Amino acid sequence: MDVFMKGLSKAKEGVVAAAEKTKQGVAEAAGKTKEGVLYVGSKTKEGVVHGVATVAEKTKEQVTNVGGAVVTGVTAVAQKTVEGAGSIAAATGFVKKDQLGKNEEGAPQEGILEDMPVDPDNEAYEMPSEEGYQDYEPEA
């Protein structure tokens, strides 16, 4: 019985440690998101679009440190934060509304985080759909 109880105690310690790591990862992701939003706020009209992409990228980098179902929630929060940063930029006159959601080359930025393969159960990952990809044929 002692062996059984000791095993359960060790398992509990492992769960607590994993929860603490997840909590730490979420806190880091939130900190990076805040950094990115402050970065966007300090940019001029020309830099705002690039700044919004930076927020998304920093958040995406930190999301990889967070495991399990938390990833889905962090990704949703990050996307809403990026959308909010863009709205703030438009409201303050840093950028025109028609410039939001495009990178410096004018290509749409939507789907940055949505296409990231995420499995809350950590069982399997699927690649994003290939609808947006084109076949590449090298020139002879």
Rank of each mutant, 00 (worst) to 15 (best):
Val77Gln: 02
Ala30Leu: 14
Val95Tyr: 08
Glu105Phe: 09
Gly51Phe: 01
Glu28Leu: 09
Asp121Glu: 15
Thr59Asn: 05
Gly132Val: 02
Glu137Lys: 03
Met127Gly: 05
Asp115Ile: 04
Glu57Ser: 02
Met116Thr: 06
Pro138Met: 12
Pro120Asp: 12
Met116Ile: 08
Asp115Lys: 10
Thr92Gly: 06
Gln99Ile: 09
Leu100Val: 06
Asp2Val: 01
Glu105Met: 01
Asp119Trp: 14
Tyr133His: 02
Val82Trp: 01
Thr81His: 02
Thr44Asn: 03
Pro120Gln: 05
Glu130Ser: 14
Ala76Gly: 07
Ala78Gln: 02
Glu46Leu: 00
Ala17Gln: 12
Thr75Leu: 13
Glu35Asp: 03
Leu100Ser: 06
Ile112Tyr: 05
Gly51Asn: 12
Glu123Thr: 09
Lys32Leu: 15
Glu139Cys: 11
Met116Gln: 15
Val63Ala: 13
Val82Gly: 10
Val48Gly: 02
Thr44Pro: 01
Gly41Phe: 12
Ala107Thr: 12
Glu46Val: 15
Lys34Ser: 00
Ala18Arg: 00
Lys10Leu: 03
Phe4Ser: 00
Lys60Arg: 10
Ala53Trp: 03
Glu28Asp: 11
Ser129Cys: 05
Val49Pro: 02
Ile112Lys: 12
Val48Asp: 01
Val48Gln: 01
Thr72Asp: 08
Ala19Val: 15
Ala30His: 00
Glu139Tyr: 01
Glu20Lys: 06
Ile88Asp: 04
Asp115Arg: 10
Lys34Val: 14
Lys32Phe: 15
Lys96Cys: 13
Glu28Thr: 10
Leu113His: 15
Val16Ser: 04
Lys34Trp: 02
Asn103His: 15
Gly93Asp: 06
Val74Glu: 02
Asp121Val: 10
Asn103Met: 11
Tyr133Thr: 09
Lys96Arg: 15
Asp98Ile: 12
Ala89Gln: 03
Met1Trp: 00
Lys43Val: 15
Glu139Pro: 12
Val66Asn: 03
Ala78Arg: 07
Ala11Arg: 01
Val66Tyr: 15
Pro120Asn: 04
Val52Thr: 00
Asp119Pro: 11
Gly93Cys: 07
Glu57Asp: 05
Ser87Asn: 01
Tyr136His: 07
Val118Pro: 05
Val71Asp: 02
Lys97Pro: 09
Thr59Pro: 01
Ala85Leu: 13
Val40Pro: 00
Thr92Met: 14
Leu8Tyr: 06
Gly67His: 13
Asn122Gly: 10
Val52Tyr: 14
Ala91Met: 14
Val63His: 00
Lys23Val: 08
Pro108Glu: 15
Pro117Ile: 11
Glu57His: 05
Glu28Cys: 03
Gly84Lys: 07
Asp98Gln: 13
Val74Asp: 02
Val52Gly: 02
Tyr125His: 10
Asp121Pro: 11
Glu126Trp: 13
Val71Gly: 03
Thr92Leu: 10
Pro117Asn: 08
Ala27Pro: 00
Glu110Gly: 04
Val95Asp: 12
Glu57Ile: 03
Ile88Arg: 02
His50Arg: 09
Lys102Val: 07
Glu126Asp: 10
Lys21Ala: 09
Met127Ala: 11
Glu137Ala: 15
Glu61Leu: 02
Ala11Ile: 14
Gly101Tyr: 11
Lys10Trp: 05
Asn122Arg: 13
Pro108Leu: 08
Glu110Asp: 06
Thr81Val: 11
Ser87Pro: 00
Glu131Met: 01
Ala85Cys: 05
Ala76Pro: 03
Lys60Glu: 02
Ser42His: 00
Val16Ile: 14
Val48Thr: 03
Met116His: 11
Gly47Phe: 10
Glu137Asp: 09
Val48Cys: 08
Lys102Met: 12
Ser129Thr: 07
Pro138Thr: 06
Thr81Ala: 15
Leu38Ser: 01
Ser87Cys: 04
Asp115Trp: 14
Asp119Ser: 02
Ser9Thr: 03
Pro128Trp: 02
Lys32Asp: 01
Lys102Leu: 15
Val3Ile: 04
Met127Asp: 00
Met127Phe: 13
Glu105Asp: 14
Gln79Ile: 09
Lys6Pro: 00
Glu131Thr: 08
Pro138Gly: 11
Glu130Cys: 06
Ala89Ile: 13
Glu123Asp: 02
Gln134Met: 04
Gly31Ala: 15
Asn103Ser: 06
Gly86Val: 02
Ala78Trp: 06
Val55Gly: 02
Val26Cys: 03
Asp98Met: 10
Met127Leu: 09
Asp119Ala: 03
Thr92Phe: 07
Glu139Gly: 11
Pro120Leu: 04
Met116Leu: 03
Ser87Ile: 04
Gly93His: 06
Asn103Val: 09
Phe94Val: 09
Gly14Glu: 04
His50Met: 14
Tyr125Phe: 11
Glu131Asp: 07
Glu123Tyr: 04
Ala89Lys: 07
Lys23Thr: 04
Ala78Thr: 06
Glu46Cys: 09
Val55Leu: 10
Pro108Asn: 09
Gly47Met: 11
Glu104Gln: 00
Leu8Trp: 15
Thr33Met: 11
Glu114Arg: 11
Gly25Asn: 06
Asn103Pro: 04
Lys23Phe: 14
Val74Cys: 07
Lys80Thr: 04
Gly73Ala: 05
Val66Arg: 01
Thr22Gly: 07
Ala124Lys: 13
Asn103Arg: 11
Leu38Ala: 13
Val77Trp: 15
Lys80Leu: 13
Thr81Gly: 07
Asp119Ile: 02
Gly73Asp: 05
Lys34Met: 14
Gly31Leu: 13
Leu8Ala: 02
Gly51His: 01
Pro128Arg: 13
Gly51Lys: 10
Gln99Trp: 12
Ala19Trp: 11
Glu61Val: 09
Val16Ala: 09
Glu83Lys: 07
Glu130Lys: 07
Thr72Trp: 05
Lys34His: 11
Glu137Val: 10
Lys43Trp: 15
Asn103Thr: 09
Val118Gln: 15
Glu110Ile: 09
Thr44Ser: 13
Pro108Cys: 11
Met5Arg: 02
Ala56Gly: 02
Ser9Arg: 12
Met5Glu: 01
Gly31Asp: 00
Glu130Trp: 09
Gly73Met: 04
Val66Glu: 01
Ala89Thr: 07
Lys97Trp: 15
Val26Trp: 11
Val63Tyr: 08
Lys23His: 03
Val37Lys: 01
Tyr133Lys: 04
Val48Phe: 07
Glu105Asn: 11
Asp115Pro: 10
Val70Trp: 04
Glu137Tyr: 02
Ile88Cys: 05
Val74Gly: 03
Ala30Val: 04
Ala89Gly: 07
Glu35Trp: 08
Glu61Phe: 07
Ala56Val: 12
Lys34Gly: 03
Pro108Trp: 03
Glu61Arg: 02
Lys6Ser: 12
Val118Ile: 15
Pro117Gln: 11
Asp135Val: 07
Glu130Arg: 02
Pro117Thr: 10
Glu110Pro: 03
Ser129Phe: 12
Val37His: 00
Ser42Trp: 14
Ile112Cys: 12
Pro128Val: 04
Ala78Glu: 02
Lys6Ile: 12
Tyr136Ser: 11
Pro138Arg: 07
Val15Gln: 00
Lys10Tyr: 08
Val118His: 12
Pro117Met: 08
Val15Glu: 00
Gln79Lys: 06
Thr64Glu: 03
Lys96Phe: 13
Gly86Cys: 08
Ala91Asn: 14
Ala69Trp: 11
Thr81Asp: 03
Ala78Asn: 04
Ala78Asp: 00
Ile112Gln: 11
Pro108Val: 14
Ala140Tyr: 08
Ala85Pro: 04
Thr44Cys: 05
Asp115Thr: 11
Asp121Thr: 06
Gln134Ser: 08
Tyr133Asp: 11
